[in-house]
Nucleic acid binder design. Structure first.
Lengths: 337, 337
DNA sequence: CTGAAAGCGCTAACAT
DNA sequence: ATGTTAGCGCTTTCAG
């Protein structure tokens, strides 16, 4: 590997000047800057990350905490983060948080403390009291996406409003018997998003003067399969089926849609279905949804952390400021008289 | 951040001994080792990655090259890599290769050359001549998964055999009119897996004495939607529809299954469908498939690179040694007489 | 088995 | 605007 003094020699300057010219910190005349850049280029010189980090304290590397790598939502947010960060020359190191308690401890105890990153982005993970403490002890910028944590800077969408919007869409189409597929109670304990969505749902009903029937709620696990099972329950019960289903995620909504079909109901003629997320399969299934632009969430988080890092701008995020939008496709329709 | 000499002082030894005790390189008496470990623990000491890397030349960090983060197959392989690497205390830094040529160049020119990683794993990316050159110039262990590259150590499954297996399953059930959904020609140009799958399909037919009909091939893009469209074409053509479809991926197979249903065909009574991959949705759709254990592929790649790194074992992989297995579920059945 | 000391390849004062 | 120099926090000879 070619090192900085070869470049210095080649350009006829000191290593300090090479460093300045290449990093853009401190003044260098345009002429020398050009010479240095040319030398670096012909020699194929790239700054050594560890040497530079050790000397400067900056790593140009962001740590990203993800709960599941193989679930669509998370990997989509991650890809947003990756592209925004890469554009700015930052590396990203990935910390995948499994269910394994010990591994999870390791991430906070050890991995994150190696001084390998300049900041961390946490994607929709519920961070415990002690973990929050450890994150803050890192003394690094931290941006969390989803799952509001009062002690951390958090990017959130207003989940209550999102759920209201979905529900109001159904109400505006004339539906009165609306079922909701949300999280199972265990899931809810340390993850608040599903609760908020349920609240928004109930608020919208209340505002429309419609009583909330517990029999029209069915828990599931945020997968297609879970949504499928829940919808079968909802639609199979004798005595007055719902005319519409609001699922707390697109994957569950797709499951519901498939369940309705399998039972012989037509969507949207017999039953309307709406989800939340903006899932890539939504278009294919003609699913009406409230899109929350997960890629964009990742990009914003990346921008926020870079702003804090490079401009020292402590982000001033209002809770619930992330955008969302109702996308009306073919899975919802007016209630037939 | 607490540093190595605090630990040294606390344990009453030199920094050299702390380094040896904690890294396990060089001999330290059990007694001092215990003292050092205790000191490190009570002080909460964690070795600084950059200082350690600079001094030793080892980073304990593996670079992973991924083409798409948000596609199920890749994120699943990635999660396998992540868990195997994390268990061994390695970090992983992620390089997402977009279609953008310039960004892609950057990865090879700059990102990978920062000496931030000890090795690289490339997931199913077709690596060009020049890129291969650059990878080799890194002088680091490189493991590629899929897309055999004669100059790189590559973990592959025998795609021809996998496709034969899927096709032979259909043949054994009595099917003779078997359609294949594969890649569109552009896709094929620099990505050989689909071609191999097609070859396996054709070989199996040939062995059974069945002529290959071009009309029974339909290209698609490896998505559910693509498979859906392709199957509609295949099943909609007047004059003798196929009785079975072999799709080169599970996502396309699921699309095909949905298309068959929408056209009013029953699966598997009227038409059998088989895919390849072992997709998480396979179970839900009762899809017969040839599983190629993507998570396991990631884990193996991680193990291989660690073996090379830590034991200096240059991996001796035979082409096509990754496991695969036919999983018969409910989407295939005997041809009705 | 342990310690002293010389770097690893940069960056950031401090000079000039 | 540029050069000199002292580290950054470890690891690794080399001695003992």
């Amino acid at each position: 590997m070619v090192s900085i003094d070869e470049v210095a020699r080649h350009a006829g300057v000191s290593t300090a000047t090479v460093s300045r010219a290449l990093s853009g910190r401190g003044h260098v005349s345009d002429a020398t800057k050009a010479r240095v850049e040319a030398a670096a280029k012909t020699l194929g010189y790239v700054v050594s990350a560890s040497a530079s980090s050790l000397a400067s304290g900056r790593t140009r590397n962001i740590g990203v905490l993800v709960p599941f790598l193989d679930r669509w939502f998370f990997s989509t947010v991650l890809s947003g983060i990756a592209s925004a960060l890469m554009r700015r020359g930052y590396d990203i190191t990935l910390y995948s948080l499994t269910a394994d308690r010990a591994e999870r401890r390791d991430v906070f105890d050890t991995f994150l403390r190696r001084q390998r990153v300049d900041g961390v982005i946490a994607i929709s993970i519920e961070i415990g009291e002690e973990e929050t403490e450890q994150l803050m002890a890192l003394d690094l910028p931290v941006i969390a996406i989803g799952g509001p944590n009062p002690r951390l800077t958090t990017l959130t969408v207003d989940d209550v409003a999102v759920a209201r919007l979905a529900t109001e869409h159904l109400l505006a189409l004339g539906h009165r018997e609306i079922a909701h597929i949300g999280a199972s109670p265990e899931f809810d304990i340390d993850f608040h998003i599903p609760t908020h969505r349920r609240q928004g749902f109930e608020q919208a009903l209340a505002d429309a003067g419609i009583p909330v029937k517990p029999s029209l709620f069915e828990p599931a696990d945020f997968t297609i399969e879970g949504g499928f099972r829940a919808a079968k329950q909802l639609l199979g019960k004798p005595g007055g089926r719902p005319t519409a289903i609001f699922a707390a995620s697109d994957e569950m909504a797709i499951g519901a849609l498939l369940a309705a079909r399998e039972l012989g109901y037509r969507v949207p003629e017999d039953i309307s279905v709406v989800g939340i997320d903006g899932h890539e399969l939504g278009e294919f299934f003609r699913l009406t949804t409230v899109d929350q632009f997960p890629r964009g969430q990742g990009e914003r988080a990346a921008d926020a952390i870079l702003a804090e890092l490079e401009k020292g701008v402590a982000p001033t995020h209002q809770p619930g400021e992330l955008p969302y939008e109702l996308i009306v496709r073919g899975s919802t329709a007016r209630l037939a008289d």
